[in-house]
């Protein structure tokens, strides 16, 4: 999935950068802890001034944000962190545990820098897994995972990573990315049902 940066019209690109600007204003108002005309006006001026004077290439967000999916993503993250913390804590104090860790390469579904980065961050936040390198060109994540004794463990980690990526794409990815992720899910579900059906 490439960011076709050049084919976005000017106003559309401004529109898609707006969330970051608004976020800066929110940050300012939040810091002052009061919503007054003064804080909002100075916030807007400051946000525009800072982004103009200290110029950085604009970030094109997807222009899409699914609130429900975002909520799910957040809840799932909290759950993952809690469970993984407990698991790592148990491993840390378990005298019988012999470390058996591995570096795993995961092929991501998308090539978007933003999704890749967020996925990498989300994985690093969860204890037990740390991203050690990213192959930007091929969309590969290399991560270090604790306690991967069997191939099944490795597959589980890989599934978790891809699941996290899917949730992120569904929450903030572009329409195209989200559609392809949904299609991939349907396919997998169908395959799953199919295999069930065969067994039955």
């Amino acid at each position: 999935m490439t960011h076709a940066a050049a084919d976005v019209s000017r106003w559309r690109s401004v529109w898609r950068q707006l969330p970051l600007l608004v976020a800066l204003v929110f940050l300012w108002v939040f810091l002052w802890d009061q919503v007054t005309v003064l804080t909002v006006v100075t916030g807007v001026l400051l946000a525009i001034g800072v982004t103009r004077v200290l110029y950085l290439p604009p970030v094109l967000l997807s222009g899409r944000f699914n609130v429900w999916r975002g909520l799910l993503l957040g809840l799932r993250m909290m759950w993952d962190v809690t469970i993984a913390s407990l698991q790592v804590a148990v491993l840390a104090i378990d005298p019988r545990w012999k470390p058996m860790n591995s570096i795993i390469a995961v092929q991501l579904l998308t090539r978007s820098d933003l999704v890749t980065t967020l996925t990498a961050e989300a994985i690093s936040v969860v204890p037990g897994t740390v991203v050690v390198d990213i192959d930007r060109e091929r969309g590969l994540l290399y991560l270090h995972a604790l306690g991967t004794r069997t191939q099944a463990d490795i597959d589980r980690v890989r599934r978790d990573v891809l699941g996290t990526e899917e949730r992120i794409v569904l929450a903030i990815g572009t329409r195209g990315q989200a559609a392809s992720v949904r299609a991939a899910r349907r396919e997998r579900r169908a395959a799953h049902d199919h295999s069930k059906g065969v067994r039955a």
Binding site: A23, T51, D113, E121
Partner: peptide, 23 residues
């Protein structure tokens, strides 16, 4: 030597950091 992870994070956090410093 390049890390896209750090680049994206720095891009996203640079302006907020400046705003906080002004605050």
């Amino acid at each position: 030597n390049r890390s896209i992870l750090i680049e994206v994070l720095v891009r996203l956090l640079f302006h907020p950091a400046i705003i906080v410093s002004v605050f």
